Computed example of a mutant assay.
Amino acid sequence: MSSDVKFTDFKSDKQPTWCPGCGDFGTMNGMMKALANTGNDPDNTFVVAGIGCSGKIGTYMHSYALHGVHGRALPVGTGVKFANPDLEVMVAGGDGDGYSIGAGHFVHAVRRNPDITYVVMDNRIYGLTKGQASPTSRQDFETSTTPEGPKQPPVNPLALALASGATFIAQSFSSDALRHAEIIEQAIEHDGFGFVNVFSPCVTFNDVDTYDYFRDSLVDLQEEDHDPTDYQSAKEKILEGDKEYMGVIWQDEESVPYHETHGVTENMADIPDGAADGTMDLVREFY
């Protein structure tokens, strides 16, 4: 790790193809700033992404990276951390990738508590496939495939994480650059699964959950005197239906990450022949 790294060192030479004004630009910038501010550098960082508008974020960042398949980024990120616990592993995805086809992997990654950071760009729409309702879309959100709305309540990803035993739950807004980077930093520094749901507006297909909407509606927990180590308070805020919060909502300060509780502490590339049997037994059990 280096204290001389700037966030621009995490920028690749590939130009993003996101729509102008897409919230993913701000989400990615905050991820890069947080990585630099926590003393990481491209040589010790691995970014895993799935499918969707967020899927190519590893291409746009200068680090080790893997562009995986739809909904499967978390198993890959967990495997990377097992193979080399010294790496800073960051998994990125969207609300469709994470809370629909990847929902099962999300639940089990949360309960295993690997020491990785999971950043979800939640724009409440399927943007890459041109504007269908996503798992987090409002019940009355009209699209070309749901002209009268999905007619089912949206997934509450924070509640899903809490029910699965999460040790760190936070929410951010891609347009609030300073707070967004701070929240990602806290997720990186957490010992365990750092989950951050980021409101990242889609300016092309979602004219409801806009930048103005989130600026007007989000309540910053930093200004609410909220104690993120108070489980009951966190649960009440997560289950409230009339407010949307930004900040760290819940953090278990006694969290011990999965690879430590199972003794996976060495880089498998450096383990002598025959000494990795226990680690491989763990990997076989995991899959």
Results as ranks from 00 to 15, higher is better:
2 S>D: 08
6 K>C: 13
7 F>N: 02
10 F>E: 02
13 D>W: 03
19 C>H: 05
20 P>D: 00
21 G>W: 00
22 C>P: 02
23 G>Y: 01
27 T>I: 10
28 M>P: 01
29 N>A: 01
29 N>C: 07
29 N>W: 05
33 K>I: 02
34 A>R: 10
34 A>T: 15
35 L>C: 00
38 T>R: 08
43 D>F: 03
45 T>D: 01
45 T>E: 05
53 C>P: 07
55 G>N: 02
55 G>S: 05
56 K>Y: 00
62 H>R: 14
65 A>E: 13
70 H>A: 07
73 A>R: 02
76 V>S: 05
77 G>T: 08
77 G>S: 06
79 G>F: 13
79 G>M: 09
79 G>L: 03
80 V>D: 02
82 F>H: 07
87 L>P: 02
88 E>W: 01
90 M>C: 13
90 M>W: 01
92 A>D: 04
92 A>V: 14
92 A>C: 10
95 D>R: 06
98 G>E: 08
99 Y>L: 12
101 I>P: 14
102 G>N: 07
104 G>E: 11
107 V>H: 06
108 H>E: 08
110 V>M: 01
114 P>T: 04
114 P>R: 05
114 P>W: 02
116 I>V: 12
116 I>Y: 11
116 I>N: 09
119 V>C: 04
121 M>F: 13
121 M>W: 12
123 N>W: 06
125 I>V: 15
127 G>H: 07
129 T>I: 06
129 T>A: 01
130 K>C: 03
131 G>Q: 07
132 Q>T: 11
136 T>G: 14
136 T>A: 06
139 Q>C: 15
139 Q>P: 07
140 D>G: 12
148 E>R: 15
150 P>G: 07
150 P>Y: 06
156 N>W: 12
156 N>L: 05
162 L>I: 10
174 S>P: 07
175 S>E: 10
176 D>Q: 09
177 A>G: 04
178 L>A: 15
180 H>G: 00
180 H>Q: 05
180 H>T: 09
181 A>M: 09
184 I>D: 12
186 Q>Y: 06
191 D>W: 01
194 G>H: 04
195 F>D: 05
195 F>W: 01
200 S>N: 10
200 S>I: 04
201 P>V: 12
201 P>C: 07
205 F>W: 12
206 N>K: 13
209 D>K: 12
210 T>W: 00
210 T>C: 01
212 D>W: 01
217 S>T: 15
218 L>M: 06
218 L>E: 03
228 P>I: 08
231 Y>M: 10
231 Y>Q: 11
231 Y>T: 08
233 S>N: 06
233 S>G: 12
234 A>T: 14
234 A>H: 13
235 K>N: 09
237 K>D: 09
239 L>T: 15
240 E>K: 14
242 D>A: 09
244 E>Q: 14
247 G>T: 02
247 G>Q: 03
248 V>M: 11
248 V>Y: 15
249 I>W: 03
250 W>N: 01
253 E>R: 09
255 S>P: 09
256 V>P: 09
257 P>D: 15
262 H>F: 06
264 V>L: 13
264 V>R: 03
264 V>K: 06
266 E>H: 11
271 I>Y: 02
272 P>C: 12
273 D>K: 09
273 D>S: 07
274 G>I: 10
277 D>V: 15
277 D>N: 04
281 D>G: 02
283 V>M: 05
284 R>P: 00
